[in-house]
């Protein structure tokens, strides 16, 4: 299992991470080594084993549908990198 630079570039795009050429090369090496180590899992017979995404027996936990105070507008925007008129401000989405 060896990842190519292009495969790493593809994953970086999925993860929306801009990486330098040096980072792409480094991660190709390091991720390949880690995945090679993880390949030992393929030898385990799991044909009749259910996956465990979550360890608790709790399912469909319901919250009481009762109104309660929430953050006010100013507080919610306090950490915003950019804001305007009480909203988060971002670059236009449909003008790529």
């Amino acid at each position: 299992m060896h990842l190519t630079i292009d495969e790493v570039r593809h994953v970086a795009e999925l993860a929306k991470l801009r990486l330098s050429e040096a980072e792409l090369a480094l991660y190709a090496e390091q991720l390949s080594a880690i995945l090679e180590y993880a390949a030992s899992l393929q030898q385990v017979d799991t044909s009749h084993v259910a996956p465990t995404p979550y360890v608790l027996p709790l399912v469909n936990v319901m919250a009481v549908d009762a109104p309660a105070p929430s953050l006010d507008n100013d507080t919610a925007l306090r950490n915003a990198p950019d804001q305007a008129e009480g909203f988060f401000r971002v670059r236009a989405v449909f003008e790529e």
Binding site: A15, K16, L17, R18, L19, N79, A80, P81, D82, F88, V90, R91, A92, V93, E95, E96
Partner: peptide, 22 residues
């Protein structure tokens, strides 16, 4: 880079995701 945390201030929203996170 939208609601909190570092924002790189790039020219498009997609580029800002990539740059802020990178």
């Amino acid at each position: 880079g939208v609601r909190y945390g570092f924002s790189a201030g790039a020219e498009s929203i997609l580029e800002n995701y990539r740059a802020s996170r990178g």
